[in-house]
């Protein structure tokens, strides 16, 4: 299992979603992507994108302006 960090800070939606999508394209089921964001829209958009692709958002952590979304790659990837 591998883990990658995606830096999507200072990007507005849907760019953080696109960066997440691109990062996940190279991963296997069970791998993890940790996405660093500042646009509050990601709290809705990354989980919505994950739902339609069968990935799991395992954690969303919000500290001041930094939002960290942890995504676990699903089986349909």
């Amino acid at each position: 299992m591998s883990s990658v960090t995606v830096d999507a800070r200072n990007l507005l939606c849907p760019m953080p979603v696109i960066r997440t999508q691109d990062a996940l394209a190279g991963l296997q089921a069970g791998d993890v992507a940790v996405v660093l964001c500042t646009d509050p829209g990601v709290v809705h958009d990354i989980p919505a994108w994950c739902r339609v692709h069968g990935h799991e958002v395992s954690n969303i952590d919000q500290q001041d302006d930094l939002i960290t979304v942890t995504v676990r790659v699903g089986n349909s990837a």
Partner: peptide, 29 residues
């Protein structure tokens, strides 16, 4: 919505993703 504070209280959604969810299909952005 992301930028203007007054719009932040409104639930924000990406309509293309919303459509994909309604349809139950994958969406490639």
């Amino acid at each position: 919505h992301a930028i203007r504070k007054k719009d932040r209280d409104r639930p924000k959604r990406n309509n293309a993703l919303w459509s994909a969810e309604q349809l139950g299909i994958k969406l490639h952005i």
